[in-house]
Design a protein around this nucleic acid. Sequence first.
DNA 1: TTATTAAACAAGAATAATTCCTAAATAAGA
DNA 2: TCTTATTTAGGAATTATTCTTGTTTAATAA
Lengths: 147, 147
Amino acid sequence: MEYNELIKVLSDKGLKVTPQRVAVLEALYEIKNHPSAEQIRQKLHARYPSIAIGTIYNILDTFCEQGIIKKVKTDSDFVRYDVDMERHHHIYCENCNHIENYHDPELDELLKNYFEKKRIPNFQIHDFNLQIIGRYAEHQNKPNQNN
Amino acid sequence: MEYNELIKVLSDKGLKVTPQRVAVLEALYEIKNHPSAEQIRQKLHARYPSIAIGTIYNILDTFCEQGIIKKVKTDSDFVRYDVDMERHHHIYCENCNHIENYHDPELDELLKNYFEKKRIPNFQIHDFNLQIIGRYAEHQNKPNQNN
DNA sequence: TTATTAAACAAGAATAATTCCTAAATAAGA
DNA sequence: TCTTATTTAGGAATTATTCTTGTTTAATAA
């Protein structure tokens, strides 16, 4: 992603453009697959050895508040973050703990229609998130993402 | 739940029947709505002031391994546990952080059929978990469950 | 019933992700 | 350029969870 685009993401949200924020945002787009704060720190270490882990958490929190990223909770002991802000679901591999985003407007439509017919009493639905749990076929080589 | 039933749950899984395990299991059934380890400790405090929090974690881990309960990850900073082992989905209230179980075999069937037609390449699905996010109607009085 | 023993427990220390605090640095607007 | 509110670095504090060790106990067999 171009430097100018990164800056635009920040300034569109009224955020001050700091080198740290640009670097974290770039790392989020580069790593893509749901990095943790620690993974971002490691990615940035070459270019930015002085960035504090607390700063990374601050920045990630700010990005969450501004709707630039989302937290993803997993079975691991830390929070992961997702730059993909379109509605999507998650594929979890029980074997390698890889999380993959799953976009499927047809499924979204199916769920929406289903819950328009079958309402949940006293509850107004805003969003869905389907966790699809299973395993990749053998010989797939996804990086292990826990621990 | 009767004492005898509680004991049966444990011994059916080949677990030693200890007062601590029985008490934790009973608390899980009593609290029902996805308690944390700390909530269980508090619930037990009157009857069982000496139980160690580490013991509660041990017991909960053992129960998870034996398929008596499941972990539920949320946006809060701690793990919650669920005694409901039938397939079900979760309703999250953004307002009060209440989590409710949602059983819907018709929905299960719908999802199953959908993904039998529309396969995910290179991935074998074992299970689904739909998070339904929204709000209870006003004047609902669900206890706040975070913090 | 009692003795044996592997498993479970209590207590508290250790760990690790995350948050908090404060002084110094800095981006943005005047 | 100057001003000021915001952001960052660095490190201490917090907190859920795990680990360790010595003690206790449930289950089994004699």
